[in-house]
Amino acid sequence: MTNDTSRANGAELVRFDKVTKRFGEVTVLDELDFSVATNKHVTLIGPSGSGKTTILRLLMTLLKPDEGTITVDGDLLTHEEKNGKLVRAGERHTREVRKKIGMVFQQFNLFPNMKVQRNVMEAPVHVLGLDKDEAAQRAKDLIELVGLTEHLDKYPSQLSGGQQQRVAIARALAMRPQVLLLDEVTSALDPELVAGVLDVLSDIAHSTDITMICVTHEMSFARDISDRVLMFDKGKIVESGSPEKIFSDPEHDRTREFLSTVL
């Protein structure tokens, strides 16, 4: 699976410039400078409350930054230029840029009244304006990719949690995003279902060119799929490096302390 609009491998796809996000008196992200290159897989690790999921929610425009700018494939996400000045973006501008981003949440959020195939094809038809026959074929291909072809005509309530999460992954990919965001996608699953979902994501990471930003506490998965791992604490990047470096020879005391609790 390739993305026709994606830039050359190694080009910057996502960029945070001095992004600050506060909730009341609490600063969750503190002048964050952060970038992800096209076709790369970046995993964010760190304790709860360190700002990792906030990054994903800002990219999905579920939150807006208090300061700083976010750029996706060269386009400002929550700002735009008007008369030479940077102003808050209108909904139309934001919606267009957001089409480049897909997200898989902790909860599956499937439409309970729609069968698996329709769950996957609904957004491409209504958001992208894709022809229904083309959307149906795209859905079938992606449902096969996540190993659920035999469940095409079932409702979400007839599937296990792990199967529902795989449908959610197919649904996110159906929009052909340039970057896929993964937010603790196995945290709501029973332990015996986790491996199946991680195997699907690992296959996608290794067999497609999609860019990934992943928040997870599954460190073996992070080691397997990541080109780069970032350790967060108190809204800042404490340490950044290859998975081999971060997991085997971290430099920062805070990284070593955190990994000792999760490995």
Rank of each mutant, 00 (worst) to 15 (best):
L263T: 12
K154S: 07
E257Y: 12
A139K: 02
E91Q: 14
E81H: 11
M175E: 06
V215F: 01
R176T: 03
S242A: 14
T216N: 06
T216R: 03
D30K: 09
D227A: 05
S157L: 10
L130P: 05
A222W: 03
K21Y: 08
T43C: 01
Q165R: 08
L29K: 02
V200G: 02
H151T: 04
T2E: 12
V72L: 08
A37T: 11
A195E: 11
K100R: 15
G84F: 03
S248A: 15
I237T: 07
I225K: 01
L230T: 09
S207Q: 13
D33A: 08
V104R: 00
T149H: 06
R15D: 01
Q106Y: 11
V167A: 04
R92P: 09
N109Q: 09
I143S: 00
D131Y: 15
M60A: 13
S35P: 11
I213V: 12
S6D: 03
D209F: 06
L130H: 06
R88S: 14
V42L: 10
L56E: 00
N39W: 08
K82H: 13
K85S: 12
L44S: 07
V179R: 00
M103A: 02
G241A: 12
Y155R: 09
K100D: 04
Q117P: 14
I101K: 00
D131T: 07
G51T: 08
L128Y: 01
A136T: 15
T27Y: 07
L201W: 01
Q164W: 13
S35T: 13
L77P: 04
F221W: 10
L86Q: 13
D183E: 02
A174G: 04
S6G: 02
G235H: 06
V229F: 08
I210A: 00
L230N: 03
L152A: 04
V194W: 01
I45P: 01
T69W: 08
F258G: 03
D131N: 15
R88W: 15
K115L: 10
A89F: 03
K245S: 13
V215P: 00
R254I: 05
E134G: 15
L173F: 03
A123L: 02
A170N: 13
M219W: 06
V146L: 05
A11Q: 12
D73K: 02
L142W: 00
I169Y: 06
M231R: 00
D233F: 13
Y155I: 06
T149Q: 05
L259V: 13
S160P: 05
T216Q: 06
K85W: 07
D73E: 01
E184Q: 05
L44E: 03
I143T: 07
L152H: 04
E91W: 13
G147A: 02
L59Q: 01
V104E: 05
V97M: 08
N83I: 09
S48N: 09
M103C: 10
F258N: 10
K18I: 07
K245D: 14
L63G: 10
T208S: 11
E25W: 11
D66W: 08
Q165A: 05
T216G: 07
A139Q: 02
S220E: 15
D75A: 12
I143C: 00
M231I: 13
F108W: 00
L180W: 02
M219H: 09
H93A: 09
